[in-house]
Amino acid sequence: MAKTFLQVRTDERDKEQASVILEQLGTNLSSVVNMLLKQIIMTKSIPFEVRMSKDYTEKEKTEEVKASMEMERLTLTEEDLELLKQYQRAADKEKFREKILAEYTEA
């Protein structure tokens, strides 16, 4: 089977800490990423629970999104951040999302 390279942007400190732990477990990042990909294929899902902690503040959520986007070299304007906050507070998130998408497609 042909192999390909996968590049992942991550915090250098996180990579180093995870590598140390994985080495202690007798494995490495490459093997764990391959295990993750196989589990995604087999389960047709993310093989672990993905959720936000109940004590994650709105500011922390916004900062996390902002940091993640900056890692991908995508910047959020103050207007973008305000939209995120409005979405977070919206009672009907789907309706809010549809409204924003409609405004975006009109522009």
Rank of each mutant, 00 (worst) to 15 (best):
Ala107Lys: 12
Glu72Val: 01
Leu22Met: 10
Ile40Trp: 02
Val32Lys: 06
Gln7Gly: 13
Leu81Asp: 01
Ala18Tyr: 13
Lys85Phe: 05
Leu74Ala: 05
Val50Ser: 05
Thr43Ser: 09
Ser45Asp: 15
Met42Phe: 11
Leu74Ser: 04
Ile46Asp: 02
Thr10Lys: 11
Lys61Glu: 14
Thr62Cys: 10
Ser30Val: 05
Leu74Asn: 07
Leu76Arg: 03
Ser19Asn: 14
Asp14Ile: 02
Ile46Arg: 01
Glu16Ala: 15
Asp80Leu: 00
Tyr104Pro: 00
Val33Tyr: 06
Leu74Ile: 15
Glu79Ile: 08
Val65Ala: 09
Asn34Phe: 08
Tyr56Met: 15
Ile21Cys: 08
Tyr56Cys: 14
Ala107Trp: 08
Leu83Met: 09
Asp14Ala: 10
Tyr104Thr: 03
Leu74Asp: 03
Gln88His: 13
Glu82His: 03
Arg9Met: 03
Asn28Lys: 12
Leu84Pro: 00
Glu79Thr: 11
Glu106Ala: 12
Lys61Leu: 13
Glu49Val: 05
Ala90Pro: 03
Glu58Asp: 15
Tyr56Pro: 00
Arg51Gly: 10
Ser68Arg: 14
Leu6Glu: 04
Val8Asp: 02
Leu6Gly: 01
Lys61Phe: 15
Thr57Glu: 10
Met52Tyr: 13
Gln17Phe: 13
Leu22Asp: 04
Leu81Ile: 09
Thr57Gln: 07
Arg97Asn: 06
Arg73Pro: 00
Leu25Tyr: 07
Thr57Cys: 09
Leu76Trp: 00
Lys66Asp: 08
Arg51Ser: 15
Leu76His: 02
Ser68Trp: 04
Leu81Thr: 01
Thr77Glu: 05
Ala2Tyr: 12
Leu74His: 07
Glu23Thr: 14
Pro47Gln: 05
Ser19Val: 03
Glu58Gln: 09
Leu22Glu: 04
Phe96Ile: 07
Glu72Gln: 12
Glu72Arg: 09
Glu103Tyr: 05
Met69Ala: 10
Val50Thr: 04
Glu72Asn: 08
Thr4Arg: 15
Ile40Thr: 13
Val50Asn: 06
Gln86Ile: 04
Thr77Gln: 04
Asp11His: 10
Leu37Tyr: 08
Ser19Ala: 14
Val65Glu: 02
Lys99Ser: 10
Arg73Thr: 08
Met1His: 07
Lys93Tyr: 05
Leu6His: 06
Asn34Asp: 15
Glu79Phe: 06
Leu22Asn: 05
Ile21Arg: 14
Ala90Gly: 02
Glu106Met: 07
Thr43Tyr: 14
Gln24Cys: 05
Asp11Cys: 06
Glu23Gly: 13
Thr77Pro: 02
Thr75Asp: 09
Ser53His: 13
Lys59His: 12
Arg73Trp: 05
Glu78Val: 05
Leu83Ser: 02
Ala90Val: 02
Gln17Glu: 15
Glu94His: 06
Ser68Pro: 00
